[in-house]
């Protein structure tokens, strides 16, 4: 056992060195990872970083409304006198949370269905694929709007709505992986050994089809955050006084000319977040597909 550990450790060191080398070769991915790291830190330590945490919860100070950025209010204040810096920082929490939950929920629905469709084939595949076709035939934004309207206007329902319009992509992706993998001799070997279907799907197929899923999921993070902001902008997601970026953009419209900082800062954060996730997604795709790797 000790010997195994040693080789494992050696491999780990080798691997860590290799990853650092890859990161050095790809500055955009590194930048994306650093930005995501900062955003995650902001989200976690929001109560410590934000100067006016109570403002994020919706405490108003109308006397200080629409103050320009300055020493006491780094990003200025909104029409109700709330500190924009605090609200934007708290907004990181919401957006990253929404991204994580929606992607996880979509994976939880999409991956098992895709595995089942790809591995079982036949009528099961046919039924599952036609269901995904139904979902994919609507523009995702429109579908999310319809679902969010039906479920009721709040952030949780918006997340459910996005996940419902998102999972078919994962199903398609993993189905095609499963189809190409199930002909491999190691799957046949597992069958010959009497390994259960469930184990074959989740151990042998899933473990070998992770890379495209991870790439897709990291790219989708940004898109999900954008979609949820869009729903909030339309009034179908987060409700006031939640410090959601899309919602802030919506309320800032009326003050765009007189108080541009109000809309600019949430916009910049949204932009940077989506960009960072796209950089990381692109980088991951290059790492995982050696043919695209620019080394």
């Amino acid at each position: 056992m000790i010997a195994f550990k040693e080789t494992a450790e050696k491999n780990m060191n080798k691997k860590a060195g290799y990853y650092i080398y890859l990161l050095k070769k790809s500055p955009l991915t590194t930048a994306g990872l650093i930005i995501i790291g900062i955003l995650v830190a902001l989200a976690i330590f929001a109560p410590l970083i934000a100067p006016y945490p109570q403002d994020a919860a919706g405490i108003t100070h109308v006397s200080e409304k629409l103050l320009p950025p300055g020493a006491s209010h780094l990003f200025g204040t909104d029409e109700l006198g709330r500190d924009m810096f605090s609200r934007v920082i708290y907004g990181t929490r919401i957006s990253l949370g929404v991204g994580t939950l929606v992607v996880c929920l979509s994976l939880a629905i999409g991956v098992p269905l895709g595995l089942a469709a790809g591995y079982a084939g036949g009528i099961i595949d046919e039924v599952i694929m036609r269901i995904t076709d139904i979902f994919l035939s609507f523009p995702p934004m429109l579908l999310a709007i319809v679902i969010a309207t039906f479920l009721g206007r709040n952030l949780t329902n918006a997340m459910i709505a996005i996940a419902i319009s998102w999972w078919p992509w994962y199903t398609r992706l993993i189905r095609s992986e499963a189809i190409s993998l199930k002909q491999r001799p190691f799957i046949e070997a597992a069958k010959a050994m009497g390994t259960s279907r469930f184990k074959i799907m989740f151990r042998h197929i899933l473990i070998n089809s992770w890379s495209p899923i991870i790439v897709q999921a990291s790219m989708d993070f940004g898109s999900v955050i954008l979609t949820s902001a869009a729903l909030s902008f339309l009034g179908l997601g987060a409700q006031p006084p939640q410090p959601e970026w899309g919602l802030m953009l919506n309320t800032s419209r009326n003050y765009f000319l007189t108080a541009p900082w109000y809309s600019v800062f949430p916009g910049i954060f949204m932009f940077i977040t989506v960009l960072a996730f796209n950089f990381v997604g692109d980088g991951l795709r290059e790492f995982m597909d050696p043919k695209l790797r620019r080394l």
């Binding site: 001799p185 190691f186 046949e188 070997a189 597992a190 010959a192 151990r203 042998h204």
Partner: peptide
């Protein structure tokens, strides 16, 4: 038990 021709893809 079975041993396959292709040793590259017969092991996960």
């Amino acid at each position: 038990q079975i041993v396959f021709q292709d040793p590259y893809w017969s092991l996960n």
